[in-house]
């Protein structure tokens, strides 16, 4: 029966293209988590509750979307959480030095861009594997943040700036709107433009991509730079949400961000994946976290589940792709 089905699929590439995809796992997981969390607490039937639960994860979600692009093109950036902290601290420092809000924001985004560019240059020019390099810059950027801010909380922002997570349009918090719009824009970019298509080609076979005239290194450099810029945006958003900037913000966030990408069915070796999967996986993480909180499981103990999910997601995705290739 199963054999017949897989034979049928192999004869119908278009059908298989739509059916054998890991992001369906994410969709199913999302449905399961919604149903079981409603069982757990009636809160979850309330859309507003879920929306509110989502706001703290929006910064991670934004980065997860860029990281999806990076992983599709066959690289990875693990310095993301440190870049959030560094740009937030730079923002706070600049503002407290009296630079004013627009200038401070610009400096934060600019420094994020520089951090990303630095990653990108070392990866493309020196050919250091990104997975190892960004472990190094993870330490470096966090260290610079600590050097700048020490153990202080950099606060004192004007009230209009603080609490972006408490501004709504309808019942939807503004950060969630930002995330959704960003996901749609990048998702459209990835699926419908020639540049998006080239990312898949680079991740599938960088050699062939080079011989087909695709500017592999320039595109990768751009992606890493973009990652830095988005981390800068996330740094400012986080500061607005928490009202302070600290060097140890978003510690360990690389796990959750990588988890969102992996749960969404992006292939760790590059060439496959999409924004839809990452978008769904974002909501899985949100509901899971909220559910675990409602069930009064300590935040720290939740790490066990997230870590195990990351490993299982990778193994499962690899398995599905190995099947769909046949």
């Amino acid at each position: 029966m199963l054999n017949k089905f897989s034979l049928y699929l192999s004869e119908n590439p278009t059908l298989r293209y739509w059916i054998v995809r890991p992001e369906w796992v994410a969709v199913i997981l999302l449905i399961i988590s919604i149903i079981s969390s409603i069982q757990l607490s009636p809160f979850f039937a309330d859309l507003a509750f879920i929306m509110d639960s989502a706001t703290p994860y929006v910064e991670y979600g934004l980065i997860a979307i860029i990281l999806t692009l990076i992983i599709i093109s066959g690289e990875i950036d693990l310095s993301i959480a440190s870049m959030i902290a560094l740009t937030a601290v730079i923002f706070g420092t600049a503002y407290n030095a009296g630079l004013g809000m627009p200038a401070s924001m610009f400096i934060a985004l600019f420094s994020g861009t520089i951090c990303g560019l630095f990653n990108g240059i070392l990866v493309t020019k020196l050919q250091i594997p990104s997975i190892i390099l960004t472990i190094g810059t993870l330490t470096l950027y966090r260290g610079i943040a600590q050097s700048l801010a020490s153990d202080f909380s950099l606060g004192g922002y004007p009230s209009w700036f603080i609490g972006i997570d408490y501004r709504y349009i309808g019942i939807i918090p503004i950060p969630v709107i930002i995330f959704t719009v960003f996901a749609i824009v990048v998702g459209f970019f990835l699926s419908s433009t020639i540049y998006g298509k080239q990312l898949y080609l680079i991740g599938t076979n960088p050699q062939t991509a080079k011989y087909s005239g695709i500017k592999v290194n320039r595109i990768k450099l751009l992606l890493f730079t973009l990652s830095g810029l988005v981390c800068g945006i996330a740094g400012v958003l986080t500061t607005s949400r928490l009202a302070v900037a600290r060097f140890n913000m978003a510690t360990g966030a690389e796990l959750e961000i990588v988890l969102m990408v992996m749960l969404g069915g992006t292939y760790i070796f590059g060439g496959r994946g999409n924004i839809f999967g990452t978008f769904i996986a974002f909501w899985i993480v949100v509901i899971l976290r909220a559910g675990l909180n409602v069930a009064r499981i300590k935040i720290e103990s939740q790490l066990t589940i997230l870590g195990a999910m990351l490993i299982i997601a990778i193994i499962l995705t690899n398995y599905i792709y190995s099947k769909s290739q046949k």
Binding site: K197, Q207, A209, Y211, G271
Partner: peptide
């Protein structure tokens, strides 16, 4: 295989 094709990618792409 190494430089000519993108293996697990559609013919038209």
């Amino acid at each position: 295989k190494q430089m000519g094709i993108f293996g697990p990618v559609a013919v038209e792409d």
